[in-house]
Each structure stands twice: as structure tokens, then as C-alpha cells.
Amino acid sequence: MPVRIETNLVPLFYIFGALAVVAALSVVAQRMPVHSALSLIVVLCSLAVVYLLLGAEFIAVIQVIVYAGAIMVLFVFVIMLLNAGRETPSHRSRMARWLGAPLVAAFLLEVLLAIWKQFPAGASHPAAAVDAGPAAIGHLLFRNYVLPFEVTSILILVAILGAAVLAKKEF
């Protein structure tokens, strides 16, 4: 069975897809750091809903727990701790003013082209069905990819230690 959104759930995909895009734009456009962070949370939660629509419940829930529930909480926490106020708009450099928009447009065009090449209009290429349940992911992580998994955890540990050492100047 290919991965495909059920027909009567397709409107939900468009709603949450649009929400993700609008919120992503809002992350950049907002002047208050907290508002930007909140918009980012909306993006992450909308993506979780899209995962849910694709039948990947585990990924969806993990997305909310890890990104929205842990990482973004730290973001918001730090913003509150620093009591960061309204951003003052900087005088953009001349290069950013002239090259910014064209570069963004070029990048988007490139992504669109890549998608277009891979999935030509009219032809449907549903991805092969993957078992995205917790058990299947656990087997993959702890059997096939156990070395990358453990190495990543050590990398994170080193990063935590480094951050602690940097933050705590005197022992």
C-alpha cells in the first residue's frame, strides 16, 4: 500500500501546509523575538499534522515532543531570560539589498525544478510504503544504524560538556 493521504483528508493537508508556509514567513517578518519563536512552533506543529496525515503517527508525535516541546521551549526560555525586546531594524548592507531577493528567487526556482524533474506533472509516484511504527523505527535504529546512533549521542554529550565549560568560566 503506497503512502498517500486519504481523499477526504486532503483539505486538511492544504490547510496545514498553507499554515506552515504562512507561519514560516511570519518567523522572518516578526519584529519581536518571542513572536518569531511562536511562529516557528506553529510551523513545527503544522508539519507534525502533515506527518500524521501521511500515517506516520510516531514521527508526528516525536516531532512535537522534541522540536516544539523541548528545543523551542529552550528558545522561548532564553528569550524570556534575556528579556529581549523589539528588534531595531538594521541598515541592510548594499549587497543584501540588491542580491537578497534575487538569490531567494533563484533558490526557490531551483528547488521547484528539482521537484518538477523528479515528479513530472500528471504522473503520480507514490512513495513505497514504509512501516513508520515505533517498533520498526526502534529496530532500524538499534540494529542497522546502531553505530551512527551511538556516535550521535556521544557528539551531543560532547556538545553539552563544551557548552557547560564555556558557560561556567570559573571552577
Binding site: V34, I65, A68, G69, V73, M80, P134
Partner: peptide, 25 residues
Amino acid sequence: DLNVGLLFVFAVTSLGVYSVALAGW
């Protein structure tokens, strides 16, 4: 009956921090 029901509860609980943090801020 979600097949990841317990994780769903934890996800929702973890979002609960925002209401407190944002109210304070």
C-alpha cells in the same frame, strides 16, 4: 485509540510549558 497514545499525552503535556512561560512573559 491512538497507537502512540502515551506519547501523544506526553507531547501535549510538553506543550503545556508554553502557556505558563508565555503568560509570565
